[in-house]
Amino acid sequence: MPKIKKKRVGFVLDMTPLVDIGFLLLTFFMFTAKFKSEAEAEQKFVIERPTASADTSKVPENNLATIKIGVDTVYQDTSYYYSLSNENVRLTVWDQQENLTDEMRQKRLLKVPLETLDGLIRNTRAASVKTRFAIDADRSIEYKWIEDLMDVMQRNNATAFNFVTEKKQ
């Protein structure tokens, strides 16, 4: 008699604590999530950053010009890559820069030789003086790449910049 009344629909588990924790984590990740920029989405190489002691200064988020140096892999050679975080500045600079193909102008991360980089940095400086520069290079790269780049930056008066590093464990 009591069996019939119970009308058992299945196994019931109290999921409340699970849901509590689930939502707690969900809100946490939602607030901390930072999405990849479009330039980063185009990046096809991985940069192993050099390690430095803990520093509180973080990469600036706005008005940032990033010069990346991707180490050579089976698929590509070592090269400079240039991207700008500010979309307006990017459009101006991309337009002003000569010897870019239309296909290249569509991209947000440009693979460029040093000579083109020179023009890009100059145009960036002209378009917006607020733009800060960051050098994001692989730790295994030869110093020559950095030295050449710093020469170019010095020539264009971009004398203050940042090296992107990783916290030493």
């Binding site: 430095a52 004398t159 990783e166």
Partner: peptide
Amino acid sequence: TTTMAQPQVMEMSI
């Protein structure tokens, strides 16, 4: 999708 470790920077001026 989230990236936890924000890279830090070393300031440099020439």
